[in-house]
Amino acid sequence: MGIEIKKGEEKEIIVEFDYTPERVEKIKLIYGRQWHPEEKFWTIPYTKDAVNKLLDIFANEEIVIDSSLNIEVNQTEKQLEKLWMRSFLQEVKDEIKLQNYSSKTCDVYLGHIRRYVEYHAKKPKELKENDVREYLLLLLEKQERSSGYTNQALSAIKFLYNEVLEKERVTVNIPRPKKGRKLPNVLSEEEVAEILSVLKNYKHRAILNLVYSAGLRVSEVVSLKVEDIDSERMLIRVKQGKGKKDRYTLLSEVALKELRRYSKKYRIEEGWLFPGGKEGTYLTERSVQRVFKKACRKAGIKKEVGIHSLRHSFATHLLEKGTDLRYIQKLLGHKNLKTTERYTHVSKKNIEDIKSPLDYLD
């Protein structure tokens, strides 16, 4: 349901819409608005200022106006721009879905494309290669964005021209910003043990034990189903991980024990392993991230780490215990071995056997 505008009592009009916090915040910007809880609708003064304000704040939504009202539907230039942007982004979104990209990539690309178009304030077809270069320089120099962020923006812009507008020549000659090598943040075994030990909630314990013991991404652990846990073969099946690939990874005996305690207490027998608040949904990634951050604070961890650090730690600790790098690559689901090789730079293996030259000066 969009925004419906109907005739009300004298000198007022009725505004109806399905509830969202954003819509409520918007209508509260109109002076003289009033909520009618019994009828479940809003009213605003039937004045030129109030009506124009209403049309402006909801310009990016579908508005249905009662024909008996004397309201001009001629949109202002700003309103038309909002409507155009909405239609344009929907076209991009449809193409991304047709290309079978993940929902996360869809959100990222839409954000970059919207910012790129809004910066130049022109239609994409009017923009040339120099405009793309100017935008990338803005990200790198003025906004001081990382090379990774800028590369992501370039990928989104290339998708826009190559797949949506079919103007490949616009961006094909633009070199990608060189990506700096950043080493992952890794927790020691003692720090991981401390984090896991402070967890009292069965669900939280099961989740973080799984992430560390199997090297899972947070998006992978929240979308696990009961059927993905193979306790006979002691494996976890990760369906449609990054790159939409299936893989198997380790099922730890300790993690399985925590899972059984959790599933018994919460009566989890089928469907999502970690259900969300609404029926048919699973736990959000943000919820797991908050659990991890809270556990770190409670455990006294001072390092700048996130939930993904447990995955980094899984790989590093396996490497330090002599596991072949190619096995670790498969467990993590890395396409390229070079991605896995970065853990050799943070591993203590071999380095701890080297003696500092300072120790020879005695």
Rank of each mutant, 00 (worst) to 15 (best):
I229G: 02
S197V: 04
V226G: 03
E189R: 15
L224N: 03
N201K: 14
E220H: 07
S219A: 15
Y212T: 02
N201A: 14
L160F: 13
P175L: 08
V221H: 02
S231E: 15
I174T: 15
S213W: 02
R176H: 14
E190D: 14
S223T: 08
E166Y: 10
I195G: 01
P177C: 12
E220S: 05
E191H: 09
S219V: 05
L165V: 13
D228K: 07
L208F: 08
K158N: 15
K225S: 09
E163S: 11
E189D: 13
L224W: 04
F159N: 01
I174C: 07
L187F: 05
K158D: 06
N173L: 15
V192S: 04
R233C: 03
V170Y: 00
K179H: 11
K158T: 11
L183V: 15
I195W: 02
L187R: 04
V192K: 05
D228F: 01
N201M: 11
A214S: 15
F159Y: 08
N162W: 13
L208H: 02
S155C: 08
F159M: 11
E166A: 11
N209L: 07
S219W: 03
R169C: 05
E166V: 15
Y212C: 08
V222C: 07
R217Y: 09
R233E: 05
L216E: 00
H204E: 09
S231D: 09
E232V: 11
A156H: 03
K203E: 04
L165F: 04
S197D: 15
D230M: 10
F159R: 01
G180M: 14
A206P: 06
I174Q: 03
V186E: 00
V186K: 00
V221M: 01
V186F: 03
